[in-house]
Nucleic acid binder design. Structure first.
Lengths: 343, 343
DNA sequence: ATGAAAGCGCTAACAA
DNA sequence: TTGTTAGCGCTTTCAT
């Protein structure tokens, strides 16, 4: 430590003294206010640079009652979908000099609730979130909204909360996925899914059911397998069990890790994909293309969803958007690969 | 909005008025100070709960000159290594009620420098970072340190900055990776790497060279291929070119996306892995196991590196650690899979 | 055990 | 165009 340690912290008072001006003038000059002379502005800027002045954000936030900070609340981060979404959000907020606090709920309602209640402190100006899968009571969300902090949901939304929502059409995507398997020759298609989280998973299940129904196929309940929402070997066991008993020739996996578990299960049972079983999955892994065999996917536009969420949030924060809450449905994309090829 | 909109914001003054106490007493009671009576504490807590009091963090941070917030500065987030590291960091800071601001440098020195300079504002109490690959001038980092904010590096560290560092032994890992290929029968091993970022990549390159040298193999410079640090098709072209001309029978890929590019390049050239070319890669993708064929990896303990970084940072913040900066080397793990099997 | 008062650093009326 | 002043909401001496 040569110079510039904690003691000689330079603030507006320092600058004011240095230039024999008032802090008010400094403040205005730094924010490029119209009623400060060009020459003064120059002097202030120069001094600020020279003395390494950095404004204290807490003082500023306290005074302005706003923080240029948003919260991103998501279940997990080591998940390609959410990571890409964060990238999308960041692409919008970084140029605006906003900052983002990350909160991981680990899909736990309690944690989510306590995080939301903390945010009522005014720590952030707005929130972008994807709710935990076991969130049923939404009062913590409504309470935060009542403080005037705008919330934008993406992907995992709360049906009974009025807020902007960015989603993909899960019903339709599942319908298309299932139809794709039917067209590839499957006669006995199972859905492998996880419990909880109605707004997405049940939509996917409905789409799956509808596609079968529209093709005159009745679903025995055994066609739907519910796994745990963890990437673990237990799921592989459940899937193996199902493959051996129900003998499906097609699998729709509703989340990423279920496809990898399905691959492992097939491998252990010596079932060939796609000859014995065809697999399609909702996912965002860029590596899906080089799985063994390449996995047919329903790809959610994660980056763009994040980007849209941030744009709408900024619209609200700036007052540019004052219309009633909107629900934006973004298209998913079916990318056919070898895991569903007909022969 | 039924109740509780912005106007009736409840602060300490509200509580004080409600209970006919001073704000000083409220403040102490809420922080469970010893010189407040039990009964008073109860009353204060009850009122706080009843009126939904949430302390204003900006006022508190301003007054205390500390924020219970840290910055996590990383090149990318849609990268399994960094995501897992964030998880590790979060596992330590969340229980301590700390908050984390995420900054993505996109591997750009300019962005990194401007982010660091912003942090001199006192926005955060400490920083955990992995530096951009093209960062050479480290003055922005030293400047921030001089303000008294502790910085802990992980993975991508700055050699010439005195700070705590959490790294893996890249030299040794590359040595082991290369030896593994030699033991699997490779005679002509190439290193596929990216430019920039000396502390890690050059260590990996050195380890690769040493392993070859120790086995009496001279490296023609063509054995080292430098790609761009983007996941793109251009790299696939570069790798194809190299595979066709140098005809290596073994590839050490220094970063994740180069392995996937190598897979694609081999596929396009109809080269079979591992029969024609064996591949090993530094990575953290959980899906490596189900690639086609399963990819042999050198796995960095991403989660634990993040966790350690956070623990050391907290040690500094709390004054528990006052020793000179330490460099913690964490072991990588070689996981042999089919992409390097001998036949 | 409780309270009065000062002030963290900044911003925004309002005055000059 | 610049300055004065009064806080933002909280914490912390120092009194009482």
């Amino acid at each position: 430590m040569t110079s510039g340690n904690k003691s000689d912290k330079v603030n507006m008072k320092t600058l004011a003294a240095e230039l024999k001006l008032s802090t008010a003038t400094i403040s205005k000059a730094l924010r490029d206010s119209y009623d400060i002379g060009q020459e003064t502005k120059q002097r202030v800027m120069e001094a600020a640079r020279r003395l390494n002045y950095v404004p204290n954000v807490y003082a500023s936030s306290l005074r302005r009652q706003s923080s240029n900070t948003i919260a991103i609340i998501i279940p997990e981060i080591a998940d390609s979908f959410f990571s890409q979404a964060i990238n999308g959000i960041e692409s919008i907020i970084a140029p605006e000099k906003y900052h983002s606090l990350i909160y991981l709920t680990h899909d736990d309602y309690q944690r989510e609730a306590s995080m939301l209640s903390d945010l009522a402190s005014g720590r952030v100006d707005g929130v972008i979130m994807s709710v935990a899968s076991n969130t049923e009571d939404t009062s913590h969300i409504k309470t935060l909204q009542e403080t005037g902090i705008p919330i934008v949901f993406f992907d995992r939304v709360c049906e009974d909360v009025n807020a902007d929502k960015i989603i993909t059409d899960d019903f339709n995507s599942a319908y298309i996925a299932t139809s794709h398997l039917l067209q590839s020759g499957c006669k006995n298609i199972s859905l492998i899914t996880i419990s909880g989280f109605p707004s997405i998973l049940s939509a996917r299940e409905q789409g799956y059911r509808k596609a079968l129904a529209d093709n005159g196929i009745t679903i025995e309940e055994t066609g739907i397998v519910t796994c745990s929402n963890k990437y673990n070997t237990e799921n592989v066991g459940i899937i193996k069990e199902h493959l051996s008993t129900a003998m499906p020739d097609g699998i729709v996996a509703t989340v990423e890790h279920l496809a990898t578990s399905t691959y492992l299960a097939c491998d252990e049972l010596k079932l060939k994909i796609p000859d014995d079983v065809k697999v399609i999955c909702f996912t965002n892994q860029i590596t899906a293309a080089i799985l063994n065999p390449p996995l047919t996917t329903i790809l959610q536009p994660a980056y763009d969803m994040g980007k849209q969420a941030a744009e709408i949030l900024f619209g609200r924060l700036s007052g540019r958007i004052i219309t009633t809450e909107q629900e934006l449905v973004m298209p998913s994309q079916l990318i056919a690969r070898a895991s569903t090829s007909s022969n």
